[in-house]
């Protein structure tokens, strides 16, 4: 958002404009994702998470964000309110009461799910969001114009905007530790987790491992891997002991989120209808007005 000059931005916009008006009679959806077979993912096992919140600390530390000292994360009173990832924390852990049979609570880590067909990528009008080959959905501050369409498009309502920053606000969301994975490290949260409730690996292997767990411990898990099919699949997938909707997961279908929003958008913009319609309308108004004037003139 900051480093791109006005001229460059106008250039891009003009190019897009030309492409849309001149070359295609029908607008294209977001580019088909180049989903690699080896794309990575994370399996979150909520039955294992102990709610120590070390992932929150590691996330902030590795992203050079402001954080309270490590030992302050032992304070469990934060669980009294349900939190959401925001511009100051890219991941949060929430705690839910378990069934009567178990005194142990259920802890659920929340962050960007890194969809296989991300709605934010599709919604972003300047291409600031992109899905990377390793599965990460990342945001490019150089391109963002701060329209916040991504925030509305995201089925998980993850992207956060730095409202408190007046001059150079950023969109903040988990970037799957793209800078770390680039140099062969694993995401900070998956590295620090003492119980490995978050396992980093090939998504395909993780889905297999998750189903294996369900088969082996049918009493421990419900028979569903959240994120395997939801909104077309996500890089982060979840296991739980009770229905995900009870753990504040959104109720989602299997169709990719962009499919829905794009169908509406593209339906409206198909065959260059809106501009033509607009010009037709304006033309019509002009014509009526002109006729009126003529009539008035005749009367005079």
């Amino acid at each position: 958002m900051t480093n791109q000059s006005r001229r460059e931005f106008l250039k891009t916009t003009a190019l897009i404009g030309t492409a849309v008006t001149g070359l295609s009679s029908k607008t294209n959806g977001a580019q088909t994702n180049q989903l690699s077979e080896d794309r990575m993912g994370v399996l979150v096992d909520t039955t294992i998470c102990i709610g120590c919140r070390k992932c929150e600390w590691a996330c902030k530390t590795s992203h050079e964000m402001e954080t309270a000292p490590l030992d302050s994360y032992d304070d469990r009173s934060v669980f009294n309110v349900k939190r959401r990832p925001d511009s100051k924390s890219l991941t949060v852990v929430n705690e839910y009461l378990n069934n009567e049979t178990s005194s142990l609570p259920i802890d659920v880590k929340v962050q960007c799910m890194h969809c296989d067909n991300p709605a934010c990528v599709s919604a972003c009008i300047v291409g600031a969001f992109s899905k990377k080959e390793n599965g990460a959905v990342i945001w490019d501050g150089d391109k963002c114009i701060g329209c916040r369409y991504c925030m509305i498009a995201c089925p998980f309502q993850v992207p956060a905007f730095e409202f408190e920053v007046a001059l150079k606000p950023d969109i903040k969301k988990c970037d799957f530790c793209f800078e770390r994975t680039k140099i062969g490290k694993i995401p900070a949260c998956t590295e620090i987790c003492p119980v490995e409730a978050v396992t980093f690996g090939r998504r395909e292997d993780l889905v297999k491992a998750a189903h294996h767990k369900i088969k082996n411990y049918p009493n421990r898990y419900i028979n569903r891997v959240f994120g395997e099919h939801e909104v077309g699949g996500t890089s982060w997938i979840y296991l739980a002991s009770k229905e995900f909707e009870e753990l504040a997961f959104p109720k989602l279908g299997k169709d990719p989120a962009p499919g829905v929003s794009e169908a509406i958008q593209h339906g409206i913009f198909a065959y260059f209808v809106p501009p033509i319609a607009l010009y037709a309308l304006l033309g019509g108004v002009m014509w009526i007005n002109k006729n009126k004037k003529i009539e008035q003139g005749e009367e005079n």
Partner: peptide, 29 residues
């Protein structure tokens, strides 16, 4: 932790799971 076989936890995870399974059950801490 960075490994190919994700079907079982790594050593650090395995240790902590064994400990925490019981140790958090009486104090919640």
């Amino acid at each position: 932790r960075k490994r190919v076989d994700v079907s079982k936890p790594d050593l650090k995870g395995a240790y902590h799971r064994q400990c925490m399974d019981c140790h958090r059950s009486w104090s919640g801490k």
